[in-house]
Write a protein that binds this DNA or RNA. Structure first.
Lengths: 222, 222
DNA sequence: ACCTGAACACCGTTCAAGT
DNA sequence: ACCTGAACACCGTTCAAGT
């Protein structure tokens, strides 16, 4: 885990792990069948860090789903690009199952149909992991041949400078071929990762909520 | 390209490509700076296969966005797991820029705000590539040490058998720990890739459309 | 400008042999 | 049951040397 956090998934080779443990690479195969096994175990360990945001509450289901997504993203963000290992696999560890169990029951509590809840879990998971993976790539720092992860040196100054650079690039594209791209250089480079993540979350939750038929409003609430 | 299509991105090593071209791996570095360059060129070549679904039409923008997504998915599906190379990078090839230009103008034609259009392109791209990547992993076939890609041998019988297997697995989970998972075994294993893709697309387009304030309906149309 | 052979510094995994 | 050294069959990239 320390090796992963410091240098990322690519540095997590059987040889480096073995070295860290003071042994040779072949010895690891007494404990795991493949490298994949080792990474899957590490991933479930990390998913276990997630604290689910309370009991399903039908009145707050949309906020609960969002809070779940935010926490998931934060945890992946803390562990380099481990999330890459979770893309395209239904995680089946104990911690992952608890997570899915919780998310399903929140959606059901919200009045979402079983089919939409099932597929909704899929698409929310896809969104969270794909976003976290993209963001993990931004954190990658090459320094003297070594690769380092760092979530917090993206200070506002650096981000602003980077966005300005990209905006300039958009603005200098040939306006006859890409008129919209050129004119949208501003919006295209607006917003940090947090804002973008919230936007996508809002789109997804609204889309899922739109499948729920509004219950008749009570004459007097309370 | 034939090597990619037949054996996938992992088989696309500098050595194999060189062999295919009747030369040695070092010779490739006279034409590309890194392997990444080669893969990026291949990716833009493939994005070029996409036929954009006509001029932006404000009355059909939602259907146009969906059709664009379907075609993108289909093209990635035809080329093994090349889409993996596009995750987490803003593709900047000529063909990719045209694609973004078109999608932005469709969203704007639909009355979506510039900011939502910009972020909407992001999230739609994320959805398409992440889905296509997940699906590409399903197509992977190991045969005698060799890896093969095949989109069409997922016949309905095989799919049904696979879904039944997963459903049985869900149903045999401990019901006291995972009550919802067990009771939802049915919905969780319902639907093929096409249905799931359409569902996610519907959710996203509804979510984006929900940001557009409905224009006053004309008293008499036509 | 383009190509080459040979090498460097790595990989995941296997396997016979040990304790 | 667990561990080991050595090897196998690979990687991407570099570099001096060639045309």
């Amino acid at each position: 885990l320390p090796l992963l956090d410091a240098e990322g998934l690519d540095a997590l080779t059987m040889r480096r792990v073995a070295e860290e443990l003071g042994t040779g690479p072949a010895s690891l195969y007494a404990h795991v069948a493949h490298k994949e096994d080792l990474v899957a175990a590490l991933l479930d360990r990390i998913i276990g860090e997630l604290e689910l945001p309370g009991e399903p509450d039908s009145k707050r289901w949309q906020e609960q789903v969002k809070e779940f997504a935010r926490r998931s993203r934060a945890i992946y963000g803390r562990h380099a690009d481990i999330v890459r290992a979770s893309i395209g696999s239904i995680p089946s560890g104990d911690n992952a199952l608890h997570m899915i169990e919780w998310l399903l029951s929140v959606l059901l509590a919200g009045g979402v149909s079983p089919q939409v809840a099932a597929w909704g879990v899929d698409i929310l998971g896809l969104y969270i992991t794909a976003t976290a993976y993209e963001e993990s790539l931004e954190e990658l720092q090459h320094a003297g041949g070594e690769v380092h992860w760092s979530r917090h040196d993206r200070d506002p100054t650096t981000l602003a400078a980077f966005q300005e650079e990209v905006r300039d690039w958009f603005e200098t594209l040939p306006a006859d071929r890409y008129p919209t791209l050129v004119s949208m250089a501003g919006p295209l480079t607006t917003g940090d990762d947090d804002e973008r993540f919230e936007f996508g979350l809002e789109v997804l939750v609204r889309g899922i909520a739109s499948t729920v038929s509004e219950p008749r409003r009570k004459r007097r609430s309370r």
